[in-house]
Design a protein around this nucleic acid. Structure first.
Lengths: 228, 228
DNA sequence: GGCACCAGAATATGATCAAATTCTCAGGTG
DNA sequence: CACCTGAGAATTTGATCATATTCTGGTGCC
């Protein structure tokens, strides 16, 4: 008992200082955002316990969080599933994304540094490459990264949080559409956004963002309509 | 014929059949919205287990949900507390509330029935009474009810959900300010909103809502600044 | 003032109970 | 005779709890 803890060598190679429920949350979140889960698919607690090799309580807590995020859906009876978006949902998401993300772009414009713009360029290049090679997973990751990185400079944690949750809602549907129609078909206004950032023109950034959001979401609407 | 199944549309209206974690969530949510919890106050799992007479797992899940809602805050170490809003947070909340709630008012205007308007009038009368008698708790409840009831007619579940979460964020601070400055001091544009609804004028409703939101939030800003 | 120890709270596991869906098997009908 | 139908069993899955383990923060001693 005197041997409390090995004090100095406590630096474990294990970077996972995070609690289990947090790790499970991150993993599940990524699976939803980047499309390993299909809309309509049932999500079972015990299934995740096996898949993610975690205990029951952490999985439970992660699922509750994701439900609150709108990323998962509680189906009245005790079942949980990935939401299937309808035209009505998409219309609301378009409005919310336009107002919130345009404002984030506006705010980021006046605060972002030249070095940070270059970082966005790097992400956008990776995005272009993913689009060119038809790498759907890469496209989803890089596209999300671009927006998230931009918003991180807006100094608006609450608005960023709202935007993040919106992405969680349409992530699975985005995956479906880009899987079906391919990555090339998606519009991409990121170049315009980067231009606006360089010129430090908030309204131009907001406008470019509005187009990026609207065209992207409209594409999802069309893609899902085709699917029916 | 080959259809799987979905014949029994047995709609269960069993109210007492809610799971424990849902009940705990609702209770805690109400406590936060209507100010039984003070900003900065620590929230412990075991404390809630005793107070709400629930098991540990349900309490845990409810807390996770509330954290995801932004109603509670995870303090890095394993502590959870009620968030304390700063001027920056309030500024973001004002923007988000204005855009989202004005849109909800706009959408509700064209869909709400005369009978439903009367229901709002009833709520607003109760609100006036609470203001007149200085009933802080009643003021908070009726004010929330008015907005929620209005938004329920907008046929926009996602936007309503976002608005709901915003209320959870500033609920505790609203309580602090109204407790300190009294209920009379709060502006109230609900009469203008009701007028706009009767005239079926969406833009007028949105404008009245914008004033209600802005003046109310500005009042919170002033109240918190005085507190410091 | 720093360090070891301790109390208490949070995290995480597995077991147990309850509910719901699915499966199966008769029985009846065209 | 084949097929639809439905009641009930069986299985899967969710909800809850009791308990063990780990971590944090404070306290008292040197």
């Amino acid at each position: 008992m005197t041997e409390t803890t090995s004090p100095p060598a406590a630096v474990q190679e294990n970077p996972a200082k995070l609690p289990a429920h947090e790790i499970v949350y991150q993993k599940l979140r990524a699976q939803i955002l980047f499309g390993e889960l299909v809309p309509g698919q049932a999500v079972t607690i015990q299934g995740l316990v096996e898949t993610l090799e975690a205990g029951m309580t952490p999985v439970r807590e992660a699922i509750r969080r994701l439900i609150s995020d709108g990323a998962l859906m509680f189906q009245g009876n005790r079942r949980v599933s990935v939401p299937l978006l309808g035209p009505q949902d998409l219309e609301e998401l378009i409005f919310a994304r336009k107002t919130i993300e345009c404002e984030l772009a506006r705010r980021a414009t006046s605060r972002i540094s030249t070095a940070d713009i270059e970082e966005l360029v790097t992400i956008d290049n990776a995005l272009d490459k993913a689009i060119a090679t038809g790498d759907v997973a890469g496209y989803l990751v890089q596209n999300y990264s671009f927006h998230t990185a931009l918003y991180s400079h807006a100094n608006a944690p609450i608005l960023s949080d709202i935007a993040d949750r919106l992405w969680l809602r349409f992530g699975p549907s985005l995956r479906v559409v880009s899987g079906r129609l391919g990555t090339q078909s998606f519009p991409d206004r990121h170049k315009d956004i980067l231009d606006a950032l360089r010129r430090q023109d908030p309204e131009m950034a907001a406008l470019a963002m509005e187009r990026d959001v609207f065209e992207g979401m409209e594409h999802v609407v069309q893609g899902l309509r085709a699917a029916n």
